[in-house]
């Protein structure tokens, strides 16, 4: 497994407990993996890391078989799950739900059929369905970003915020961010949705730049958006006036942090490789017999020039 900062919340992930593994290893275990299609940078990263983890595990363990399905919308994902259950005879399911509510029922049916269920990133609407939950820390993502702003702007300042697609994830991040900067003298001039999209963020930032004569920093809250924002700032020739904090851990951004780029002083991780963590942990249950059930939350680590090299993956498309 990749070495990276993680915190283990209430999970009993002990080192391999030697169970009589012979019986387990004789017949093939089929693990279904259902993830959203690569519709933007981050999900592209999810696809890459899922494929990579599957290839690696299939090579390493003969008795593991994987079924990978990508879905462009929630409805397609429900069909994928039904097909996996009906025709592919899966023993375990790793699912990154497209949306929480529509997927809760279908995932519960998989669970009721006696399968091991791992849910990644987006929690289900009903508690206690999944055996294992692997996710990033969304409030932590906003909080760490907020703490960084406070540290960089001890005397306060004027900032603008670009939000993602209106979702629970986005709300949690923004609320935690606002709580973190409370009372610091940092004033949020404006907040608009850039939909985690480079083009949208470019246009929103152009308009922020026309609207506000003084901006000290931008919380772009996503690396794709940060790239659009930086381009808009460059067009207005106001690079020296402000810096930008993105998020997620896109390789181009991590590289810029590592190069001490003054416009990109840091980044906050929300690694798409969490899908690999989930697949590996699920596989571990079948190859080692270790206890896996529980919750596994990955830290939203702050990447700075000092530690950037640890989080740089040149081969990833994200």
């Amino acid at each position: 497994m990749k070495k990276r900062a993680m915190s283990l919340v209430g999970a009993a992930l002990a080192a391999a407990i030697a169970l009589p593994g012979a019986a387990l290893s004789q017949e093939t275990t089929i693990i279904g993996v259902s993830i959203p299609a690569a519709t933007h940078g981050w999900t592209g990263g999810v696809n890459f890391h899922a494929q990579e983890a599957i290839d690696r595990l299939e090579q390493e363990y003969e008795n593991l078989d994987f079924v990978l399905a990508t879905a462009g919308d929630a409805g397609k994902q429900v069909s994928d799950l039904e097909d996996m259950l009906a025709t592919r005879n899966i023993d375990a399911l790793v699912v990154l739900p497209f949306e929480s509510d529509p997927l809760t029922g279908p995932v519960k049916r998989v669970k009721d059929a006696g399968k091991f269920v791992t849910v990644v990133d987006r929690g289900l609407a009903q508690e206690g369905i999944e055996d294992l939950y692997v996710a990033g820390d969304n409030p932590g993502f906003g909080r760490n970003a907020g703490e960084f702003f406070k540290e960089k702007m001890p005397d306060g300042g004027k900032i603008v915020v670009l939000r993602g697609i209106p979702t629970v994830i986005d709300n949690q991040r923004v609320e935690a961010f606002q709580t973190a900067i409370e009372g610091s003298g940092i004033e949020i001039l404006g907040m608009e949705h850039g939909n985690w999209n480079r083009d949208d963020a470019f246009e929103v930032m152009q308009d922020f730049l026309s609207r506000f004569p003084e901006i000290n920093a931008v919380w772009a809250s996503d690396d794709d958006m940060a790239l659009g924002v930086i381009e808009a700032i460059r067009q207005a020739n106001r690079q020296d006036e402000m810096w930008v904090l993105g998020g997620a851990g896109m390789k181009q951004m991590i590289e810029r942090v590592g190069d001490n780029d003054t416009m990109v002083p840091a980044d906050v991780l929300y690694p798409p490789s969490m899908i690999a963590t989930a697949i590996e942990l699920t596989a571990l249950k079948y190859v080692s017999g270790a206890a896996i059930e529980g919750r596994y939350i990955l830290n939203s680590t702050l990447v700075t020039p000092e530690n950037a090299s640890q989080y740089y993956y040149p081969d990833s498309p994200f």
């Binding site: 690569a38 940078g41 592209g44 890459f48 794709d224 498309p317 994200f318």
Partner: peptide
Amino acid sequence: TWLADGGT
């Protein structure tokens, strides 16, 4: 999407 390998 295929040309970009799912990324950019």
